[in-house]
């Protein structure tokens, strides 16, 4: 049995990793300046330590690939992985397939935190680099705590209540955020940007800043795969099997909020990734988190990469906020899940 799971793990991870590499090259090719496939591949390979090719390309082309497009591609991959793995963790721990950082209002909480830091603590050198992510994380945590407390009714939470609580918190914090924007004046544009989400104008530094969060978050969640499986039996059944449910739940939710907070602090609110990707992957590979978590993380990266490629190329020389693209796909998907859930009596 364990043998089968390991084989399945290797095959799926391998397949998705190959797909990811291919998507990476293809999306670097696409843009206002179109680059041919072999040329793109050569430029990319030339930057790897083992390769030393004779340049058949111009410095401008190298700059487009290495300084403009590739950081953005990596940013999309990292953010997609963060949001999607958070989705898996939230859905698993809360036993609710609709639990997604955006729907539960965690993203907007993070955006509110980020906006606060931009407005009031812009020049605070105390935390320097970490100020905005830290505020973002606190905002995420605060709104999640609020949602959980609101949805808790006589010690148990049902699925719809959790979603409704998410709506309440989203509207309330959204209102605070709009208020901040209204009084912000100068920084207005920068804050509006958090609300819509965009991967434009980022450098390797932003990617570098996010990678430790992704690595740590994913590493922690990977250690919880068996527990995420166990909790699907129900909280009391998991307790009877020896799992410390309350403690685990808090930690997993905190780590999910950390991932969301870090992602939002750099690229703003991008919704539905954590909803769509894990659900599709569940249909493909089944409910076992030992496969679902790594696969959804990879698939989330690929998904957001293509969503962003679409966002920057669908209208020539114009950019659509990526949050708009994910919402175009995600909202109908959410509606479908909701409808399916209502018909069956459970989602």
């Amino acid at each position: 049995m364990e043998e089968i799971i390991r084989t399945k793990q290797i095959i799926w991870t391998g397949a998705l990793f190959a797909l990811l590499l291919m998507s990476l090259v293809l999306s670097v090719m696409i843009g206002s300046v179109h680059l041919p496939f072999t040329l793109t591949l050569k430029i990319l390979l030339n930057h790897l330590p083992l390769f030393d090719l004779t340049p058949t390309w111009t410095l401008a082309q190298d700059a487009i690939v290495w300084n403009l497009r590739l950081p953005r591609v990596f940013l999309a991959l990292v953010i997609g992985a963060m949001l999607s793995s958070t989705g898996v963790a939230f859905q698993g721990m809360l036993r609710n397939p609709l639990a997604d950082p955006y729907i539960l209002g965690v993203s907007v909480g993070a955006a509110f935190g980020a906006a606060t830091s931009i407005l009031f603590f812009r020049n605070s050198s105390l935390l320097g680099y970490l100020t905005t992510p830290l505020f973002s994380f606190s905002g995420a945590l605060l709104s999640l705590w609020f949602v959980m407390a609101l949805a808790k009714h006589h010690g148990q939470r049902d699925r719809e209540t959790l979603i409704l609580a998410g709506v309440v918190v989203q509207s309330l914090i959204g209102a605070f955020l709009s208020f901040l924007i209204a009084i912000s004046g100068q920084q207005m544009q920068e804050i509006v940007f958090w609300m819509m989400g965009s991967l434009a104008n980022h450098s390797w530094q932003d990617v570098g800043m996010l990678i430790p969060y992704l690595a740590l978050g994913f590493f922690y969640l990977s250690l919880q795969k068996r527990d995420l499986n166990l909790i699907s039996l129900g909280e009391s059944a998991a307790t009877h099997l020896g799992m410390n449910v309350e403690k685990k739940k808090i930690w997993v939710l905190v780590v999910g909020s950390l991932l969301t907070g870090a992602a939002v602090s750099v690229v703003g609110i991008i919704g539905f990734v954590g909803l769509i990707v894990p659900h599709l992957m569940r249909l493909l590979v089944g409910p076992d988190h030992r496969i679902l978590l790594p696969i959804s993380t990879l698939a989330g990266a690929i998904f957001l990469l293509w969503a962003d490629t679409l966002a920057r190329s669908i209208i020539p020389s114009r950019e659509i906020p990526i949050g708009v693209i994910t919402a175009f796909i995600g909202a109908p998907f959410f509606a479908y899940l909701l409808k399916k859930g209502l018909r069956r009596g459970h989602v």
Binding site: R226, N229, L230, S232, L233, G234, G242, P287
Partner: peptide, 22 residues
């Protein structure tokens, strides 16, 4: 428990194996 096992898509074997957890 009274409620038994929720309607999961885990297989019988996987659910039974969860009993080894402790």
């Amino acid at each position: 428990e009274q409620e038994g096992i929720p309607p999961l898509s885990f297989t019988v074997e996987e659910v039974v194996a969860m009993g080894r957890y402790p």
